[in-house]
């Protein structure tokens, strides 16, 4: 690839394996063992796209932990939502939850996490990428999606382009900006196997501070805390929903996220709500969180109310 060619869009000058193109995810193929993928903090992705008038699930760059430099090769309007990763444009700080203009030749950089873990960068109409099995969400493990369609993360020398005009910029109502408060309470829809855990384990699950282990990625996040005990063992593998909290025999729960395996055989407490999954995506290893139980019906009502906020304006 000719690095000096100016073909418009954004040229990637520096990237990491944790930076990928994502969209709403890959659906209708999980029976082939293909995972869901998609933006972990889908709420921030929705806002980034909303700010530009894009379809809410249009392709965005999911920037995990920073260390990304992009050279602007055309004048454009972009939008940023999610974590504060110390973003700046030619050295001037850029706040998330806004659209912003860039000029050809400017340098857009993301340093390190200052608040939250994942930022979402949107472009007019969504970034261009091949649609693989219905989505451009990148997943290295499955070699599907991403900028080249082979699941590889964003790499230096690559070019991000788009085809929209960006004439429908919006401003967020400040009251709607998600706040990443420390030690969040994450809602968990109780699953059918919850009765297989001991009373003490259920008490511990919902009354302890859980610490996020360093062995955490887009597939799942391990939680460290009291050892949970389940009476059930040797379960037959079954389908796993997003946010499922499974408990392997070592008693330390794993929250299964967008890149999870489709089927698994460990017992589960239930599954986090989509809003809780989005919040968890902004937590870094070492941070604490709490789990709080919720009935499916109440969770559904709350989720539909949440989706309503993007319908206005």
């Amino acid at each position: 690839m000719n690095h000096s060619a100016n073909t418009g869009g954004l040229r990637v000058e520096r990237s990491t394996p944790f930076i990928q193109l994502q969209d709403a995810g890959r659906f209708g193929v999980r029976h082939l063992g293909v995972t869901q993928s998609g933006a972990l903090d889908w709420i921030s992705m929705y806002w980034a796209n909303w700010l530009l008038g894009n379809p809410l699930g249009a392709a965005v760059v999911e920037i995990t932990l920073g260390n990304l430099n992009l050279v602007c090769e055309q004048d454009a309007c972009l939008a940023l939502a999610g974590a504060d990763l110390g973003a700046s444009l030619d050295g001037q700080p850029l706040a998330p939850w806004c659209s912003f203009s860039v000029r050809q030749g400017q340098l857009l950089t993301f340093a390190q996490p200052r608040h939250g873990a994942r930022a979402y960068l949107a472009a007019p109409g969504g970034f261009d990428a091949p649609c693989v099995l219905g989505s451009c969400a990148g997943i290295a493990r499955e070699q599907l999606g991403g900028l080249q369609g082979n699941g590889k993360p964003l790499a230096a020398g690559e070019q991000l382009t788009w085809h929209g005009t960006g004439l429908r910029q919006r401003t967020m109502d400040e009251r709607l900006i998600p706040v990443f408060t420390p030690s969040p309470r994450l809602q968990l829809v109780m699953g059918a196997q919850i009765g297989d855990f001991s009373g003490q384990s259920l008490f511990d699950a919902f009354n302890s501070a859980w610490k996020i282990d360093s062995r955490s990625d887009r597939m799942g996040m391990r939680l460290l805390g009291p050892q949970l005990q389940c009476r059930r063992s040797g379960m037959v593998s079954e389908g796993i929903p997003l946010g499922a909290v499974q408990v392997p025999p070592d008693g330390q729960p794993i929250v299964l996220l967008n890149d999870r395996q489709t089927i698994g055989g460990y017992p589960r407490l239930g599954a986090l709500t989509p809003q809780a999954v989005a919040r968890l995506a902004q937590c870094l290893p070492g941070e604490e969180l709490h789990l709080t139980p919720i009935q499916q019906g109440s969770a559904q009502d709350a989720h539909l109310r949440l989706l309503n906020q993007w319908r206005q304006g």
């Binding site: 059918a192 929903p241 599954a271």
Partner: peptide, 10 residues
């Protein structure tokens, strides 16, 4: 029917 998550059933 078993509740699996907000929008899924086993």
């Amino acid at each position: 029917f078993e509740v699996a998550g907000i929008d899924s059933l086993i």
